[in-house]
Design a protein around this nucleic acid. Sequence first.
DNA 1: TTAACTGTACTATGAATCATAGTACACTAC
DNA 2: GTAGTGTACTATGATTCATAGTACAGTTAA
Lengths: 131, 131
Amino acid sequence: MFELDIRSRKPIYEQLVERLKELIITEVLKTDEQLPSVRTLAQQLTINPNTIQKAYRELETQGYIYSIKGKGSFVSPANDSQNKEKLLKVKNDLMKLLSEAMYLGITANELIKMIREIHVSIGGGIENDQN
Amino acid sequence: MFELDIRSRKPIYEQLVERLKELIITEVLKTDEQLPSVRTLAQQLTINPNTIQKAYRELETQGYIYSIKGKGSFVSPANDSQNKEKLLKVKNDLMKLLSEAMYLGITANELIKMIREIHVSIGGGIENDQN
DNA sequence: TTAACTGTACTATGAATCATAGTACACTAC
DNA sequence: GTAGTGTACTATGATTCATAGTACAGTTAA
């Protein structure tokens, strides 16, 4: 399903959270789509099921997936009730990173260009999809 | 000088790196300005000198400060030779975070507004300062 | 030179975290 | 029931984090 760097200082379960979040955000994994079971994914990635479970638990805490005992784990709808908290956190992180980027010399125009690119690849098809 | 959260899961030295980077980026600490010595800062923050040293070493690796044995640690000039690597890393992080932000519903307009704010507070007075 | 300050490099210890292994239980679907 | 899900434990070893202590090299000023 994807690659992990065992040697990295970043914990495996954090890499998992990051990669899965990407797949959800880019809608490779769609709303209510079922994720691989902890045991299946553990076997595929040759890592321990507990590590997968830790990643899934974290994703559930962050509101990106939901789990049903006996059934499986699934992608949460994009606009859920936890979004406000997440938004605050992300905005805070963004301010820091944008400050650093501009300190390092990235221009406002470059940033706006990046935003447009993402807008096309992520939100482009959604913007006009409202009823 | 500033506050640290001892209970946080985030290591103290990482918090130090983050806070000092902020002070450098916002130019509260200016180029070639001397930082507190490892022992002094350790005493002020009631933490171990080794922890301060670890943070300073990390900041030096990242190119934000330089240290001279026997003299002290100082803020590096903003535009040094390591900027290109830093820029690549920051751009990469920015793409991820911007994607997440837009997935969560932040609009392009909001982002542009944030960029303008930072532009004013950081780069505002510099833009016209070229010879 | 001496004293007091800087950065830097070690070793050692205890606490916490990470990943693994193994076991167990509750729930769902067939 | 059987086989598949999620979930919750315990235990172990490796690694990381923060501390403590010691030591050495360079700078500065008396």
